[in-house]
């Protein structure tokens, strides 16, 4: 058995606030495999963003251990070069696209990361072109970011991370400020990066539908790991989720309501298609007639 890509053990972190220490993360342990797609759920202030910033050493934990690709990054003897290597491997995309773009020309911004890494000029050019193609923004290479839509800006931010050739990308509520179209584009890119490029994806979100796309869900509550499992497992506990200020996708909610009314519906029901399949199966079992519309 290979060791996991990210291994977090007994991680704790507290903010200093007016002399008092306010714990944000408490004794948190979990692991993420290489190439996994993991969603992190939790209410506002549950410690999700802090966790993200600990994973690439923007913050230093008070206690506990983080191992990434076999190297303990919480090791006090970590060299500066190793620190930047961690940040390169663990790319991060934030919520507000405006506050993460540095340059006034799209391609210059995408080049920012590789330039910092000291990549040779010709290779930067190549990486920038590839990254922009991957997010479908080649046409905008010479545009000014501030004239683009939120979704487009966020795609530029993602391209800027891709150009650093990361192993893992952490999305910190990266869809929260986008309209449905922008969100759809960003989610498609996330899927794509994970499925086709094998990039490990950690996504922090408030949208249950987005968490349902992941391989696995971690639920945080007040800095502690509250639940973890596949989306199907997690969303089969609507009451526990409601108790900590979360909910379940509408599809799952419907199936729970039907079950509560005594109608047995089998299956996971995370997406409309799964949900429709499960309900049709239940209807067939009850001998309810189907009259498909003639078109």
């Amino acid at each position: 058995m290979m060791e996991p890509f990210i291994q977090v053990e007994n991680l704790s972190y507290a903010y200093e606030e007016e002399g008092a220490r306010r714990p944000v993360l408490r004794d948190l342990s979990f692991a993420v495999e290489k190439g996994e797609y993991v969603a992190i759920l939790g209410h506002n202030g549950s410690g999700k963003s802090t966790l993200a910033k600990l994973l690439n050493l923007i913050l230093t934990p008070d206690s506990g251990k983080i191992v990434i690709a076999g190297r303990e990054i919480t090791d006090p003897n970590l060299t500066e070069d190793e620190l930047y290597e961690v940040r390169r491997r663990m790319g991060m995309v934030f919520q507000n696209p405006d506050n993460q773009l540095v340059a006034t020309v799209v391609e210059e911004d995408v080049a920012f990361g590789p330039e910092n890494l000291g990549v040779p000029s010709e290779e930067i050019r190549q990486r920038v072109d590839e990254a922009l193609a991957l997010v479908g923004m080649q046409k905008y290479a010479r545009h000014e970011p501030h004239r683009l839509s939120g979704g487009q800006k966020q795609r530029i931010a993602i391209a800027g991370i891709i150009a650093m050739l990361p192993d893992c990308i952490i999305f910190d509520e990266s869809t929260a400020m986008l309209d449905p179209m922008g969100r759809r584009d960003v989610l498609r890119i996330m899927d794509n990066l994970n499925r086709e490029r094998g990039i490990t994806v950690l996504t922090i979100t408030h949208y249950m539908n987005e968490a349902a796309r992941a391989d696995r869900v971690l639920v945080l509550n007040d800095g502690e790991l509250y639940m973890q499992g596949t989306p199907a497992e997690i969303f089969s506990h609507p009451d526990e989720l409601a108790a900590i200020g979360l909910d379940v996708p509408q599809c799952t909610d419907l199936v729970h309501q039907l079950r509560a009314a005594g109608i047995a519906v089998e299956g996971d029901c995370l997406t409309p298609a799964q949900c429709a399949d499960a309900i049709c199966a239940a209807c067939a079992a009850r001998g309810i007639p189907f009259n498909p519309p003639q078109s």
Binding site: R87, G91, A111, P114, E115, P120
Partner: peptide, 15 residues
Amino acid sequence: MECRCYRGGEGRTRM
């Protein structure tokens, strides 16, 4: 910027 490995002008290349 820190997440994108910014560490000042030292060792920086340009596209």
